Computed example of a mutant assay.
Amino acid sequence: MIRSPFYNAPVQDYWQGRTDGTDPDMLRWHQVVQCIDLGKENLPALQEEQKGIVLVGFASDEGVRRNKGRVGAAQGPLVLRRSCAAFPVHFDGHLLIDGGDINCTGGDLSGAQQALAVTVKQIIEAGYLPVLFGGGHEITYGHASGIYDSYQQSAIGLINFDAHFDLRQPGAEGASSGTGFWQLAEDCRQTGRDFYYLALGIQQNSNTRRLFDTADALGVMHLPGEYFHHLKRESLFRNLHLFVDSVDKIYLTTCLDVFAAAFAPGVSATAYNGILPDAVFLECYREILYSGKLGGGYR
């Protein structure tokens, strides 16, 4: 159970949508999702061969605010739940749990990230896959920290679909939405763990030369947005497979500003030349999902 002032229980009313019927082949997410207050209950025990996903929101604008961005991401978990509610069910027999939100109250980003890390670890220990709804990209540090803590003897690979490296060093206000991967690299340095990071969709005009130099110094593998094109598909997937094969577990995160502004007009930093959510991107995404190494996902 989660004992934290940053935790809010799930709200069943968020899950509403079209109902075609109650037969198993007619169900939608809002008809099968179980809202469980992790502050009062444990997750249901999974049966043999049964899989489970726990959705957790990270309602935070603080990292974006510190990063001088456009706030509003704290509403993301609610909007994403409502967007997913009418999805058809294609996971018969498996469990879909809404585990509530971690909120960044009082501007205490460090406290919220720590609470998120503990929540992620408990979900993994219960045998479930944590899938997080953000929130600004300050979600990365808390989420990935929980995965590192859960798999202490494993090589953790960080895969980030993003126009930005998010390798900035924290400023006067502390961590922000742009510092998560630098923080994780620093944690790895201090604990003696190898740092594996693959950034996909990087834009040159979204990152300073210092950030490119930092990425190179840390051994970060990165591919620019132009690789998401059929002419460079072979190179994209060759590099992706090379990275996936080198790690044991994967933390997967997608920052919506990786997409072209026409598809993600509400993000804090729009990219006119971002990638397209087309067949090449989806194939790349599925390669990661089907690798069998996923330790946690964020969108």
Rank of each mutant, 00 (worst) to 15 (best):
I2K: 02
R3Q: 13
R3F: 13
A9L: 04
P10L: 09
Q12P: 01
Q12I: 13
M26I: 00
M26D: 07
H30P: 00
H30V: 08
E41P: 00
N42S: 14
P44R: 08
A45F: 05
A45I: 15
L46E: 07
Q50S: 12
K51I: 04
I53R: 08
L55T: 09
S60G: 07
E62S: 07
K68R: 14
V79Y: 05
C84D: 00
H90R: 14
D92N: 12
D92Y: 10
I97C: 05
G99R: 01
L116V: 04
L116N: 01
L116D: 02
K121D: 10
E125F: 01
A126I: 07
L129S: 08
G135M: 04
H137F: 01
A144S: 12
Y148H: 11
Y148G: 02
Y151T: 06
G157W: 00
D162Y: 08
D162C: 06
H164N: 03
L167K: 03
E173H: 07
S177P: 08
G180V: 06
F181N: 00
D187G: 03
R189A: 14
R189F: 09
T191Q: 12
Y196W: 08
A199M: 03
S206F: 13
T208P: 01
D213S: 11
A215Q: 04
H222Y: 15
E226Y: 15
H230V: 14
K232M: 13
R233I: 08
N239F: 07
L240H: 02
L242C: 07
L252H: 05
L256M: 15
A261N: 05
A261Q: 12
A262G: 04
P265R: 14
A271I: 04
N273M: 10
V280R: 06
V280Y: 03
E283V: 03
E283D: 15
R286L: 10
E287T: 15
Y290P: 00
G292Q: 11
